[in-house]
Write a protein that binds this DNA or RNA. Structure first.
Lengths: 244, 244
DNA sequence: CAGTGGTCTAGACCACATA
DNA sequence: ATGTGGTCTAGACCACTGC
């Protein structure tokens, strides 16, 4: 079962994980095949089930396997990642108009808050000014993909809440209701982070799936900054693409 | 110690983690302050030390605390992240010429391999053609930041190994030795992943620190694709910045 | 009902740091 | 020598699945 001359890993977890990865890479197991149960693996490797569990957690975080409670562990399929082109004048809703994926955007909540230092700097407003904060859940193919938070100065969109519907698009509202030009992205930052507890449930991920966090600012031409936009996208389903 | 009327978290780990986050956010603990030991926290919360450990793992992955073996747990400072501007004609070495950071690039290994399907498609060569694969470790302020892998068709850089030194720059070699124009980035993809076991030691991170994985292609003007470039950057220290 | 993954307790040994 | 975090064993209970 195990290599007879395996290197002293001194970390049973990685040893077990490597063994499973080897099985998958050598095509001895295909996508959605069921792995031996945790108890079975513990017996075979002569370790405690807790050690097996840590190895499985490692593999889940790296998207090699997935678990179904009561059923078992399964080999994860090669992920079909959503490639998201980062273009400076286009948003989620517009991207997916040209994609063959079933796409859905759901309004989660909105609130009126006061701008703190960092936010007021980026939006070029005074600290303490009122800001609409609107949170969306974006899903593709019925599976959640990203949590997005728009922050827009109230003075630019008075009475915004009157136009927020369950499946509204901010860009659409800015154009149709407030008659702004199409906002343009001035910058994006992207970083890898671990999910916040509150987003784990929304995005249906466990705590070990990495997220791509993006912060951007959108301006209306000849008007100025209109939107501070934060995206937490599932790392296993989302890939940013920048063309030059 | 604990909230008297705390919500039933049904997950002691998150409850403990939230408590520590609260301490930090309310400024009751400052950066580099020492937390109570794991045994102490276990006593206070009336849970087993294993549960405390899982809570601490959660906080470490999110960069709220760090551990020192034999010493204790400490509040992590607000991370000074390296902001890396994604511009289409500039590489690591050139970026850091204009930064006040102490920067170092170290050649880890090189090898000559055959191109597989995906790689040959991107570099627009035949499958099986020989490719130089060169691996670097980039460090900033004495701390490792990213592992970078360059893949360059052998026919474009014959005898490359003769010019590889411990602190060489690929762009510099392409220009000075092979007299190419400065390569230009045609595209970049960025995604969040968990670290590979082999990169964990190099980058001095544990398995729960997310990585920003970037793949890009560089072309020499009027010549064509020259380099396939993969970067695994520490999520806690690296942020991508795109200006429009 | 038995088997599965998810969470937790209890206790052990190690390597490392500090006094 | 004591205390720390890091790893592991042994065993428990739960919620869920499928027979």
């Amino acid at each position: 079962m195990m290599d007879q001359t395996h290197a002293i890993e001194q970390d049973m977890k990685l040893e077990i994980a490597d063994y499973i990865i080897g099985l998958i890479q050598r095509n001895q197991m295909a996508a959605h095949d069921r792995l031996p149960s945790e108890n079975e693996l513990a017996k075979r490797f002569g370790v405690n089930r807790n050690t097996v569990r840590r190895a499985m957690d490692y593999l889940k975080a790296r998207d090699r396997i997935y678990a179904q409670k009561g059923k078992g562990l399964f080999v994860a399929p090669s992920q079909e990642q959503i490639v998201f082109p980062q273009i400076n004048n286009i948003g989620f809703s517009e991207i997916f108009q040209n994609y063959p994926y079933q796409y859905e955007s759901k309004l989660l909540k909105w609130s009126l808050v006061r701008a703190k230092a960092e936010l007021s700097r980026i939006l070029e407003i005074q600290e303490g000014e009122l800001i609409y904060k609107v949170k969306f859940l974006r899903s593709v193919q019925e599976k959640p993909l990203a949590v997005c938070i728009s922050r827009i100065p109230q003075k630019m969109v008075p009475d915004l809440q009157a136009h927020l519907t369950l499946d509204c698009s901010i860009n659409h509202i800015l154009k149709q209701v407030y008659h702004y030009e199409h906002p343009v992205c001035k910058f994006v930052t992207a970083e890898a982070v671990m999910p916040l507890a509150k987003n784990m449930k929304l995005l249906e991920v466990n705590e070990s799936v990495p997220m791509l966090k993006q912060i951007s600012r959108f301006d209306v031409p000849n008007v100025g900054p209109v939107e501070h936009y934060t995206v937490y996208a599932r790392g296993d389903r989302f890939k940013l693409d920048i063309q030059f």
